[in-house]
Design a protein around this nucleic acid. Structure first.
Lengths: 226, 226
DNA sequence: CGACTGCTTGATGTTGCTCAACGTGCGTGG
DNA sequence: CCACGCACGTTGAGCAACATCAAGCAGTCG
C-alpha cells in the first residue's frame, strides 16, 4: 500500500483527466493504492464499503452469488471504476470483485469522490458517460444471454477475450472452465464439451488454457446464429 | 404537445428537484411534453435522438431486438429517465421504449441537460445515484434470469408487478402473454402453460389479464427455489 | 503417497422449445 | 352483413438442448 500522487499518475481514468491539479492532490491524499494477484478478492459482496474502487491496471471479474451458484456479471479491463453502483447508491457492496490478472487498484474515499462530482461538472459528466456505456453493454449481453444458446454464448465469450481484452487471436484464458461457465451461464461440464467440440471442428486450438482462434469467421457465425 | 413550465411541475425527478428556479426555467424552455397511449412507441432502436427522455407518469417497457426476437429489458415506472444511456454515450438509440400504460413524457434537449450536469453538482450526483441503482437492479435480474428456471422467473415477474408496480396482489397485467414471455425469456406457449399451471395449483387466479395472487408465500418459494 | 483441484467424457434424465392445431375477439374490406 | 385476415391465447406431442450424475485422469501440494 502506498500513498500515491494522483497528479503524476499516467493511468488516469477518463473522468480523472478532467480534474485540475488541486483536485487531483485532494484525491491523492484520500486514496490508497494496492496491488492484487490473480484470485485475490478486491472486495466482497455484503461487506461494508466506504471507498470508490478504481482499477488502474489489470483484469478483474465482477461477480455475485445467485440463487443457485456464482454468476460472473462482467469481466472488466483497466481502466475502470468498480464501486460506483453499490457504493454511491448504498452502503454495502452488492457484488464482489476478484482479480483475474495482476491488478493495481486505487481505493478512493467516497466522500472526496462525492465532493468532486459536486464541484467539477466535467468529471461528473465523464462518469455519467461511462456508466451509460456500461449499462448499454449490460443490456446487450443480457439479451444475448437470454436468447442465444450455449455455443453461441461461448463463441461470444471467446471473441470477447480475443477482441476486447487481448487484441489477438491467441491468448491465455485468465479464468478456469468453471469460471467461464459461470460467465456464460452454463455448467462446467458443458463448457468443457463445447470447447472440445470447437477444438475438434478445427475452429479453435486448445493447449490447456492457451486458446488460438483458427476460424474466426466460423466463430462469428456461431455467435450470430445463437 | 405543450411547452411546460418545469418550475411548477409537481412530478419532478429526484435529480430535477435539485435544480434552482432559473435552471428549471431553462430546462422548461427546451422541453416538450407528450402524452402516449398504451402500445405507442416513445422512441425506437437505431433512430437518431438528441433528447433526453423523462417519464413523468405512466409505465413503459424498454426493449431491444435480440439475435432471435424482441427482448424486454426493463419495465419502468414513472418517474424515470430513459435516454441517458444511449443518448449521452452515443447519438443513436440502442433500444426502444414503448408505453404500456398511459404515459406523460418530457423530451428534454440533451445539450441543456449536458449543461445542467456541468453547472449543478447536486443534479449530476442524483443522476449518478439513479444510474447506479438501475445498474444494480440490472445485475440482479440478469443473474436471476440466467440461473432460475422458467417458473421461478415467472414467479419473479408476477411478484414484481404486485410489489413494485401496483402494490396490490390483484392487478391487471399491462402486457400480453407474448410480451411477458419476452420479458422473462421464454416462449409465448410456455408462458401460457406456466400461468395455467399456477392457476390450477391455486397459486394465482386468472381472469384474462386480471391476475390475483392467492398464495403469495408459495409464489415466493417458487421464486426462491429457481 | 494420498488428498485435492481442475478438467474431461460418457450415460441418463429433465426442461422447456418447437411445431401444429384450434378457439377467440377485433377490425377491415368486399 | 359476412368473410377474411390477424393478433392473442391455449393445449398436446415430440424432440433437442442442456443439466446432472458418475467415473476417471493429470497435475500439484502437503
Amino acid at each position: 500500500m502506498s500513498n500515491p500522487l494522483c497528479s503524476v499518475c499516467t493511468l488516469k481514468s477518463n473522468a480523472a483527466s478532467k480534474l485540475n491539479p488541486g483536485e487531483l492532490d485532494l484525491m491523492g491524499s484520500h486514496c490508497a493504492e494496492v496491488d492484487f494477484e490473480p484470485g485475490d478478492i478486491i472486495f466482497k459482496q455484503n461487506s461494508l464499503s466506504s471507498n470508490v474502487v478504481y482499477v488502474k491496471a489489470g483484469l478483474v471479474k465482477i461477480h455475485m452469488l445467485g440463487p443457485i451458484k456464482e454468476k460472473i456479471l462482467r469481466i472488466a479491463k483497466a481502466p475502470t471504476y468498480l464501486c460506483l453502483p453499490s457504493n454511491l447508491g448504498d452502503k454495502v457492496n452488492h457484488f464482489s470483485a476478484t482479480a483475474i490478472e495482476k491488478c493495481s487498484v486505487c481505493f478512493i474515499d467516497s466522500r472526496i469522490f462525492h465532493d468532486l462530482i459536486h464541484t467539477n461538472g466535467d468529471f461528473a459528466f465523464q462518469l455519467i458517460m461511462d456508466l451509460s456505456r456500461i449499462e448499454l453493454m449490460q443490456f446487450i449481453s443480457c439479451t444475448n444471454q437470454s436468447q442465444k444458446q450455449v455455443n453461441g454464448r461461448c463463441a461470444d465469450a471467446l471473441l470477447f477475450f480475443a477482441k476486447d481484452i487481448y487484441q489477438s487471436n491467441t491468448f491465455n484464458l485468465p479464468v478456469s472452465r468453471n469460471e467461464l461457465a459461470d460467465y456464460i451461464g452454463t455448467s462446467r461440464e458443458n463448457m468443457s464439451r463445447i470447447l472440445a467440440d470447437f477444438n475438434n471442428a478445427g475452429i479453435i486450438e486448445i493447449d490447456s488454457r492457451k486458446i488460438t482462434i483458427i476460424k474466426e469467421d466460423l466463430l462469428q457465425q456461431i455467435s450470430a446464429k445463437g
